[in-house]
Amino acid sequence: SDAFNSTLINMFASADRYVVEMEIGTPPQTAYLVLDTGSSDMCVNEANNTYCESLADGNDVWTSNYELTATASEISSTATSHKTYNTPCSYWGTFNPNTSSTFKFNETVFNATYGDNSYFAGTYGTDVVSLGNITLSNFTFGVSDDTVNSMGVLGISLPFVEETNIFQLTSNTTPFVYDNFPMALKNQGKIKKIAYSLFLNELNARFGSILFGAVDKSKYSGQLYTLPMLQAFNTFDSEFSGMFVTAQSVAILDSKSGNKTVSEVQFPVVFDSGTSYSSLPTEIADAIGRSFDGKYSSDNRGYIFDCSKVNNTLLSIDFGGFNISANISNFVTPLHEHCLLNIMASDSMFSLGDAFLMDTYVVYDLENHEVSLAQASFNNEEEDIKIISDSVPGATPAPGYSSTWVYTPGSPIGTGDFVNVSWTSYSEFSQYKSIYATESLSDGVSSSSSSSSSSETATKKKN
C-alpha cells in the first residue's frame, strides 16, 4: 500500500516543486498538483485553456520517458514506455470536465491570485478525487480556463483563505466557506482533526511526505514547539492571508568564521510549500547576502557569491525561545561558477519556502490556529505515528508562545534592531547550539548579548 508510481525527471535543478499526484473524475484523469500550504483552493487547468494552447507552437513536443519494472514471484520484467504531450500543461496534467460523468459545475466564479500575481480563473465545480488510497466524493475545486500557470495547485491552508471569501467579497456576492482538502478529509471521516504534518525530506531526496491527521515522531529531532498563528492574517484587512507566525530573530551559523546575528527585528512569516524561494524583509535579505560577500544581481533578483562561502553554513531563525536551522546550500542555485541565493527581499510579504522547509518539520493545526515546529530528522528511523485528536502529540508551547510580538496591519516590521554584523570567534559548530554574538547596533551604540540556552535570549529593543 506504500508503493507509488514515480516519474523520473532529469535533475537540472533550479526551482524544484513538491507535488502530489491526484486522480480527478470518472474515469479518473491524472494531474500533478503543487502542494501549497500558502493557499486554500485546489485548482486544475482545463485542457483547452488559452494559456495552455498558446504554449503549443506546433514544433515542440513534451516527452516523458519512463521505465516500468514489475516483479512478481519468480518473474521479473522491465519495459520502457514513451508518451508524448502537446504542451507543458498536458505534461503536468489537465482536467476535461466534459469527459467526467461525475463532474458538476456549481456556477460559482473561481479566481485565485497569488503573491507573484500569477492567477487561475474559471469556475468552481465538484467531482470525486483520489490521492493514494483515499477517495473524496463531491470535492470542490476550481477548473481554470484562464491562467498563466501550466501546473495545478492543491491549496491546503485555512478555510478563511479560500477564494470564495476573497473574490466573492469584491463581486458583491456573499463570502462562504466550503470543505477544502484538509476539511474534506475530516468531514468525510478520514482524519479526526484538521491538522497535518509536512516533511519535505533532505535536498537530494526524491520524495517527502505529508501526514494528515497525525504526527510522525521519527521525522524530527529535539522538541516540537508550538506557536500561535497571527490573527492579523486571517482578516479581510490584510493584503496576504494564511498561517503566519512570528519570527523573532535571524542568524547565520558558520563553523569556520563564527556565528552572527543578522537581525533581531520581529516579522510575520508563513511556511509556504508552494514556492521554493523565501522572501524576507529587505534589510535581512540584504544582510544575509552581504554576509557571504555577495553582490546583488538585479537580473537574477538575488545575491551572487562564491559557492564555497556557504559550505557548512546554516540560516537559523528564532521563533520565540527556540531556533530552527536550515542549510544554506538548500537556498542556492548554481550559476556558472558562482551561486545565487534564492532569498528575495520584500517589504510586505515574508515567507519561508521549500529551502527552509526541507530542514523543518511543520505541523499545521488548522482548528486550533497553531503551528508546531521542530528540526527535521533524516535518520530513516521506523515510523512513530501518533494521531492528532486534540492537541498535537509531543508538542509543547514555545517559551515565547504567550509573549510573542503581535503584528499590526500596516506595520510590517517589528520593534527590534537590525544588526551591523561583526563576526565572533567561536569555532564550535552545532545547528542546535544557541547563538553567541557580539554586535554593534545600527544607531552606533555598542552593546553585546549572549545566551547559553534558548530560554535566556537577551533581546534589545528600539522603539
Partner: peptide, 28 residues
C-alpha cells in the same frame, strides 16, 4: 487509521518546461 499519509514527489525544473515558481500565498 484516522490518518492519511501521502507521498510528495519532488519535481526538478526541466529546461523549457516552464515550471513556474508560483508564490503560493493567496493575495487579496
Amino acid at each position: 487509521n484516522s490518518y492519511v499519509k501521502l507521498p510528495i514527489q519532488k519535481l526538478a525544473n526541466i529546461p523549457n518546461i516552464n515550471l513556474e515558481d508560483v508564490s503560493g500565498i493567496s493575495k487579496r
